[in-house]
Structures are given as C-alpha cells and as structure tokens.
Design a binder for these strands. Sequence first.
DNA 1: TATGAATGAGTCTTCATTCAT
DNA 2: AATGAATGAAGACTCATTCAT
Lengths: 198, 198, 198, 198
Amino acid sequence: MGNIEVREPIQKRSIEKKEKIISAGFGLICKKGYYNTNTAEIAKAANVSTGIIYQYFKDKHDILIAGLKKYTYNIFFPNINAVEFKNNNFEDFLKGTIYKFIENHKLSKIAHEEITSMIHTDIEVSSIYYDAELSITNIMTQLLLTNNFNPDNLKEKVHISIHLIDDLCHEIIYHKHKNMNYDKMIEIVVHSINYILK
Amino acid sequence: MGNIEVREPIQKRSIEKKEKIISAGFGLICKKGYYNTNTAEIAKAANVSTGIIYQYFKDKHDILIAGLKKYTYNIFFPNINAVEFKNNNFEDFLKGTIYKFIENHKLSKIAHEEITSMIHTDIEVSSIYYDAELSITNIMTQLLLTNNFNPDNLKEKVHISIHLIDDLCHEIIYHKHKNMNYDKMIEIVVHSINYILK
Amino acid sequence: MGNIEVREPIQKRSIEKKEKIISAGFGLICKKGYYNTNTAEIAKAANVSTGIIYQYFKDKHDILIAGLKKYTYNIFFPNINAVEFKNNNFEDFLKGTIYKFIENHKLSKIAHEEITSMIHTDIEVSSIYYDAELSITNIMTQLLLTNNFNPDNLKEKVHISIHLIDDLCHEIIYHKHKNMNYDKMIEIVVHSINYILK
Amino acid sequence: MGNIEVREPIQKRSIEKKEKIISAGFGLICKKGYYNTNTAEIAKAANVSTGIIYQYFKDKHDILIAGLKKYTYNIFFPNINAVEFKNNNFEDFLKGTIYKFIENHKLSKIAHEEITSMIHTDIEVSSIYYDAELSITNIMTQLLLTNNFNPDNLKEKVHISIHLIDDLCHEIIYHKHKNMNYDKMIEIVVHSINYILK
DNA sequence: TATGAATGAGTCTTCATTCAT
DNA sequence: AATGAATGAAGACTCATTCAT
C-alpha cells in the first residue's frame, strides 16, 4: 500500500489512454492556464475517469510536464529549413525565419504566455524550455558552421540572435507599446543579427 | 452587498499601516509566490489583523498591484547616470550599465521571476511592467538624443537594446546553459548595441 | 468596564442623532433587508461614526427594533376615518378602506416584505407587529360598536376581517397568481366582511 | 473557473446520499434558520464530507430549494379527503379540514415560520410556496365543482377561504393575541367560508 | 461625546488526491 | 484496469463590535 508505482503502460490501449490524457490535459492547460484547469476537467476532456489519471501520472503537475516534453519545441520554435538557407541571401533567410517565429507564436498565443509564465516559477518547466532552446541553438549553429560562418563564439552569438528574434515576436504579437514602428524593428533586428553573426 | 468602499487613508498612522501591508505583503509574494502567500500570512507579517487589509485593499490582488506600482521600476531597472555617460566612452558606459542591470537582477532574483511570470498571465501586472519598460526606454532615448546619437528610429533601437541586456542578465543570473562563455557574451552584446545605436 | 449602559440621550443634539440613526438605519434595512445592511452603511447614512451607534443602541438589532416601534403602525395600517364611515354605506366604506390598505402596501412594498419576513423569525419583531395589529383591531371594533354593530365576538370578527383585507392586499400587490380576477376578489371580500360583521 | 456541473446522481447509493443531505440539511435549516446553519453542520448531520455537498448541490441555497420542493406541500397543506367530503355536511367537513391544517402547522411550527419568513425575501422560495398554494387551491376547487358548488369565481373564493383558514391556524398556533376566543373564531371562519362558497 | 481604525471569528466554496467497488 | 464518489484541508473575504485617541 502506498508504494504502488505509477504504471508504465505497455498495452496499446493503455498507451493511447495516456496520450489522450496528455493531449487533452495539456490542451486545456494551455488554453485556460494551469491553475484554472482542474483534474476533473482534464479527465472529462480525455474521456477517462479522474481516478485513472493517477495510474499514469504522479500528480497534476506531471501531466503538464509530459505535455511540455512533447510539445514545447514545436510551440516555441519553427523548423529551420537548410534548403531555404542555401537558396536565399542571408538577410532574406533571416526575415523568413522571423516570420516563421511570429507565425508560431500566433498559433498558440495563450499557450505561449502560460508556459513562458511557468518558466519563471517552475524549475522543471524551465529546464524543458531551455533544453528546447538549446536544441534550436545547436541546429542553427550547425547550419551556420556548415555554411562557413565564423566559428568564434558562434553558439553565444546564435543564442543572442534567437533571443533577439523572440523578443521581437513578443513585441509584435502582444503589441505592448504604442508608437513603435514594427517594420523598422524587424529591419533593425535583421541587420543586427547579420552584424553579430558575420 | 455592502457598498462601503475601500478607504483611502489620510491619517499618518493609517498611511503607515497601508505601506506596511504593501511592503510586507509584496515582500512575501515576491519571496514565495502570489499563489503560495495567503492573506493571513500577509496580515501577520504586516502586524495587522486580516480584516484591516480589506479596508485598504479591494482584495489580495490589489496588494500585489500596489506593490508592483511601487517597486517594479526599481526591481527591474537601474538608475541611469547621465554623468557616467559623459565621462566614459560609450562601450564602457554600456558595460557599466549592464553590470548595474545584473546587480539589480541579483538583488531580487525571486521577485524578478515571480513578477516576470505574472506579466504573462495577468493583464494588470503586464501593464505596470510595460509602463516601467517604457520609462526606461524614454530615459535612455532622451539621454542619447542629447548626446547627438542618430535620432532615426531611436526608440525602437533603444527598446531592442534593453531587451538584449535583459536577456543577457537572465542568462547570467539563472545560468541556464552550460558551455556558454558569459564574458564573451557581454562583449558581443556591447558591440551589438553599439552597432545598433550608432 | 463592560457595564457602561447604553446612554439615554437627554440633550437635544443627542436625541436628534439617535433619531437620525433610527430613520437612516431603518430606512436602509427596509430597502435592502436586515442581513444586507451593515453597521458601517447605517453610520454613513446617518452621518455619524460607527462607534457612536453603540452608545445609543445595544447592537444592530436594537436599531431595527427602535425603527419598528416608531414606524410599524404606519407602514402596515392606514388611518381609519370615522367621518367617512358615517357618510357612506358600509360596503362603500369597506371598499375605500381596502384601497387605503393597498395604497399603504404599495408605498413600502419592500419594507413590508422584509418586516413580514422577520415577524416569523424574530420574537421582538412579531410582538411589535402584533401590538400594532391589536391597535387597529381595537380602533375598528370601537368604531363599529359606536355605530351599533352587533357586539357579539366583535373583536374576533374584526380580526378576521382585517386579515382578509391584508391577504387580499398581498395577493394584489405581489400578484402571485395568474388567472385571478382581482376585481371580483375585492367584491367577494367586501361581501364576506359585511356578512361577518353584520 | 471549473465548469464541471453539479452531478445528477444515478446510482442508488448516490441518490440516497443526496436525499440524506436534503433531509438533514433542510431539517437543520427548518430548526435553526437558514442563516444560522452552516455547511459544516449540514455535512456532519448528513454524515458526509463538506466537499461532497457541492457535487450534488450548486450551493447552500440549492439545498434549501431542494428541501422546499420536496416538503413544502406537506408542511403547509393537509391531504384533502374526497370521501370525508361526501360523508359529512359541508360545515363539518370544513371544521375537520381546519383541524387538519392546525395539526399540520403544529407538526412543524418552526419550519413553518422559517419558510414563511423566506417567502417574503427569497423569490425562489416564494415561487415554490405559491405553486403549492395553487395546487391545494386547484384540488379544492375541483372537489367543489364535482359536488355542484356554484362555479362562478370559485377559484377566487377557494383562495380566499384557504387564506382564512391559514390565518386562523396562525392565530391559534402562535397565540399572538390574548383575549381572543378561538372556538368562536373557528366557528366564525366556518360560517364565513360556507357563506363565501355557497 | 465622538471618531474611525482595528479586530478576528466565522463562512462558503474549491480541488488535488484517495479509495471502495 | 477502471470508475467516480468521497475526502477535508485550505483560503479569501465579511462584519458586528471594541478601543485607542
């Protein structure tokens, strides 16, 4: 008693059930916020009983983590296309990438905010996010290296560049400041990154 | 039902008490998080009864807002010293400013995270934060203008620069990524800002 | 300590203040209900401090009682005019009286309901009400006696008649039942009372 | 936030539990008054946890309403026996009915007062009560019609008669006025109703 | 006399988690 | 494996009354 471990589902039906809980639960959390989503709702959305949730997950938080692990990368970062890189001059590629980032942010505005919020409070959440960030940094760095960019501190430079883009997206999506010329801002960011990386 | 409004204290003792509630309450919230701080604790920390809180504040959230209005600027942004600007070359001034930012972040690491978190969920919080951000942007812009920097889209440029610094601080304080050379990063950021603003 | 009695105001200013509290307090209670009116509101409406209330009244309930003692009769019962009685035939007088009752009810619909409600829960309230009811019964009985109505069990008859009127008013004012012909009802009540009393 | 609805229990155990909460809760409310009964007491009396109450009921008020729906008719009105009607002369039947009403009132004196009180403040309560009143009115009207009473405005007449009885009961049970001859009053009421209906 | 700030017990309601079936 | 009923601690807020001034 008390030490029944969380079940790791082997049978196909079980796996499907677990997946359903993750997607339904994480979906709700992203839509309404972690604190505003309760387990009863998650169970209902996943079409399972409340009890069964605790067979697959340690607690409510565990569902969040599972969802994040599965979806964080896609929510935050777009796919980088090596071919596009080749076929365009660098600044055009950058602009295209920025638009992709913006698109990504737009797709799941609320999820984005909710998760970003938790990055700052929840160590597990932040760790998952920073792993994803590291991934995209590495991918980009690799891409640049194979295209003969200057390798000195390239990782740091890429990292800074990504943040530059991310802040820009944020500014544009959430439109926090009046009197900002966003087209100009994009231009400035593109030039800056070009400067930083070359 | 009752429509007795929240009192605006006029007497000195009352004002002090209200301040006490704000500082004690906001202090706890920053240390433990908004959701992990309850009104009883706030009352106790402020050395008042739970009831009196509701004479000065509409609800718990109102205490948070009062605290933010009072402290946000100082928590997030350092004082910009015009004299230092004059007496140094620009890159040195930037470096100094960056260290000040870092110092500020360090002073109230948790508050910082907690508030940043809420910026992404709570519209009132975000509005206060963005006001403060606007302030520092304007102050910096003004300073640069009086020192003959190129005025074209200066506000946008400053804004981007501040974010660059902020991200850097974050990276350094919370040390999220291994294998990053932070000294180099500072250098890169300084150069980038210099490039952007000039 | 603790046995300072409730002050009986002697000075004119004090008496005025007490009256103000009664009228303002009772007014609010009648408008919003006893449980939905708090002492702070009463104090504000009476233009006094909350503390002073407890110099004149034992507690909140005491204000209610003072108000009831002062206003119950007028709220519930109209003035019976002996002259009108003389100058009309009895059924016309009855009809007139009924309309007066209805007018009275209309004037303070909510007060009426609120007090009626408390009659059924609060022994002091009910006692005040029943005293007032006894008054009107006696007045009516006397009036009839001096006009040579049959004195056998007249008090009982009057009492029943008054209730008949009161129920009628209620029915009409609060319009609880669809499909009731109120003109007919008045007629029936008039005939019944005529039958009962003669 | 959560929008999980109140459950409508289907299983036998659940139904029983819901019933238990209603009877225990409504019992307490009738005995001590709605405002003097708290949810913890209700839970304890029903032998359940406080939480479960909110699975079956929207809120505390909802318990009251459920209780009223179930018990109002029986608390306020006796069963009318058609056979008794046939076998007695009308005035005797009336007298019997009056005694039944009195019996009913006696059985739940406090509940009676408490509910009557709320009829005057709470629109849902009043609506339930007036429905019950309408029921008994219709039943009586029907009974009289099938026994060849004059159908002109019979509903109105019955309605008035019921109030007459109700007031009488009240007078007798709560004994508000000294010097009233209750036997005589019953007699008068019986004659009056006989007059009204025929 | 008078003020109005202060008290703190009391109440409803929510919800993650457990448990009997 | 699954259900969903049950638990009960925790928390925000109200308000009659008291008390320092």
